[in-house]
């Protein structure tokens, strides 16, 4: 660090001591004002204030202790720990990434404005800007990085739980089960679906299995291939499989693709599939009202 930068660092340290409360107030107020009308989440202003106070303390300590160009945020630094924790909380609460970045960047502006009140020499000022860039830009990168990581982890968790949720096997009558398929079927899902279905067939001793594909957006050869494998495996367990809910477009596309469904029973609607299944079980639906009348 050259002499000017060292002087600027010392001046910032002094500013953080003497003007601490003014800086804190302006910062927090500006931050909250910027949020007005956007999603506040359930972040109480007192919490932001307390965190900002801690940030000022940590920054003060950082600048005081032989701060130099070689400084890099380390995960063990208290100031980095503070920011990662803050960023993680905000990401989970659904704040925008821009808001958490603005938090650090607005602080930079406030601190520089205070600095200008004391020192207006251009050379000294540009040294001050350089020092602040050095520390705060790196810190804002820490915030962004952690923010992204947290979001990515959330998305991964959600897609995993979606995978679990989206393959329910429903028992709709004694020895009759329904597998409603919704959404895109990739290899991972197809495996999961087959596993769930075969277990349920064995457990319920299903004689009829209805596979409903109303919710499958596009039937390409990969999906058709997965579907056939699942159905073949089910048939090996001795269940009668009925495929329902194929759209007219889906049927025409499969024919064009040259995919044949072989000897699988198909019915247009789920309703037709259920009545077919009941018939196969030897059940008859009787209209109670008509018989009474």
């Amino acid at each position: 660090m050259n002499a000017l930068e060292q002087a600027a660092t010392d001046r910032f340290t002094t500013l953080l001591e003497t003007k601490r409360s003014v800086i804190l107030d302006t910062w927090v107020d500006q931050f909250l004002a910027d949020w007005e009308g956007t999603r506040h989440g359930n972040l109480p202003p007192e919490e932001i204030r307390a965190q900002s106070q801690l940030f000022l303390d940590q920054l003060h300590r950082l600048l005081q202790n032989n701060f130099s160009h070689s400084w890099q945020p380390q995960s063990a630094d208290p100031i980095v720990q503070l920011l990662t924790q803050l960023s993680e909380t905000w990401a989970k609460k659904g704040l925008a990434a821009a808001q958490s970045t603005f938090y650090i960047l607005s602080f930079k502006r406030i601190l520089l404005a205070r600095y200008l009140e004391l020192e207006s020499d251009p050379a000294a000022f540009s040294a001050a800007v350089a020092v602040l860039d050095l520390v705060l830009d790196r810190l804002s990168l820490v915030v962004v990085e952690r923010f992204e990581m947290t979001r990515e982890r959330l998305i991964k968790q959600q897609s995993l739980s979606l995978l679990e949720l989206s393959t329910p096997v429903v028992k709709i009558w004694d020895h009759m089960i329904l597998l409603p398929l919704v959404g895109v079927i990739d290899t991972a899902r197809a495996r999961k679906i087959t596993e769930n279905l075969l277990n349920s067939i064995a457990e319920i001793e299903a004689m009829v299995t209805i596979v409903d594909i109303t919710g499958v957006p596009v039937l390409d050869t990969a999906v058709a291939g997965h579907l056939m494998k699942t159905i073949n495996a089910a048939q090996m367990l001795g269940t009668h499989v009925i495929l329902t809910g194929m759209s007219p477009e889906g049927a025409q596309t499969l024919v064009k693709l040259g995919v044949s469904l072989g000897d699988i029973t198909t019915r247009g609607s789920l309703k037709a599939g259920i009545s077919e299944g009941l018939a196969a079980l030897g059940k008859v639906i009787i209209d109670g009202h008509r018989r009474a009348g």
Binding site: P248, E249, G250, Q252, T253
Partner: peptide, 13 residues
């Protein structure tokens, strides 16, 4: 609808 479905399927393939 049918042609759109054809095109979407081709894209997926």
């Amino acid at each position: 609808k049918v042609l759109a479905y054809y095109i979407a399927t081709a894209v997926i393939e």
